[in-house]
């Protein structure tokens, strides 16, 4: 009896510790940032957001993140398909390389892009010879975003393709469907949940990306200054209020996306 009593206290303490850790580490900071940005009332919040540099930064981030996501949808769908459906030399190697952007520090990723496309590099000089700037302009930011979010769509599409019943496809062929018809009416619909949830994850990551972008963007206010770099600038210039306000905007957007992903996934599981 005594032993049981003790173990019950033990497990109670243990559980509370874990839960407390979780709440303190994850939940509290998020509540903190929301309260901070509204601490002084609605007006300062509104002022921080309506600063043209602030909303330009947010809009720019949105625009570039959308472009990067669209690129990744195409690349990711294609690569996911090729890596699962075809057998060719080097397939395994490529498959493990997919995760490289996850493993690589984003600052290193940014540096790589800078080295490759920078003004002193081969590509950079050719491009500027053609009157086309990459680094310190929007294209570099998109490249950085694409690089960092590269694995998401691939990794979301692959399991779906893997578990897809080959007989479904074969049934379509026996019913006289052509290859392209089968792809768009049978295969593609079952890839779609993966593509969409992968794309949303990629989008929310692109919105949040800092390390890779800060090195290549040039960070010219109103032109190549994206939201996360703007927030960083505000913190550096000791304006936590402004930083918090823009953070809240960005966070809310990300939460909505995450919630949508969850919804898509639970719906899929529900089926």
């Amino acid at each position: 009896m005594n032993i049981r009593f003790r173990s019950r206290w033990w497990s109670f303490g243990f559980r509370s510790t874990i839960m407390l850790y979780f709440v303190l580490l994850i939940v509290l900071p998020i509540i903190g940032i929301y309260t901070q940005s509204f601490k002084l009332g609605w007006t300062p919040f509104w002022e921080s957001i309506s600063d043209p540099l602030a909303w330009k930064a947010v809009l720019l981030t949105l625009k570039l993140a959308i472009i990067a996501t669209v690129i990744n949808i195409f690349l990711g769908t294609m690569i996911g398909w090729v890596l699962i459906r075809y057998r060719f030399p080097g397939r395994r190697l490529l498959n493990s390389l997919v995760d490289l952007p996850f493993a690589l520090p984003t600052a290193v990723g940014g540096l790589m892009i800078l080295l490759l496309l920078g003004p002193n590099s081969l590509v950079g000089s050719i491009a500027s010879g053609m009157g086309f700037d990459i680094v310190f302009h929007e294209p570099a930011i998109v490249v950085a975003m694409v690089f960092v979010t590269f694995p998401f769509v691939i990794r979301a599409v692959q399991p779906l393709l893997e578990e897809m019943d080959k007989s479904e496809e074969e049934a379509a062929y026996t019913l006289g469907a052509s290859k392209s018809h089968t792809f768009f009416n049978v295969i593609f619909p079952s890839m779609l949940p993966g593509i969409s949830s992968g794309a949303m994850l990629a989008f929310s990551r692109a919105l949040a990306e800092f390390g890779a972008v800060v090195l290549v963007a040039g960070n010219i206010p109103g032109k190549t200054l994206i939201a996360s770099v703007y927030i960083f600038g505000e913190i550096e210039s000791d304006n936590p209020q402004g930083a918090a306000a823009v953070s809240v905007m960005l966070l809310t957007l990300s939460f909505l996306i995450l919630w949508a992903v969850n919804l898509v996934q639970t719906r899929r599981l529900g089926k």
Partner: peptide
């Protein structure tokens, strides 16, 4: 669903929260 929150939070914002 709370577990995933840090995924949705830009690292800069994560740092800002702790500073705040």
């Amino acid at each position: 669903s709370l577990v995933d929150l840090p995924y949705a939070v830009s690292p800069v914002i994560g740092g800002l929260m702790i500073v705040l």
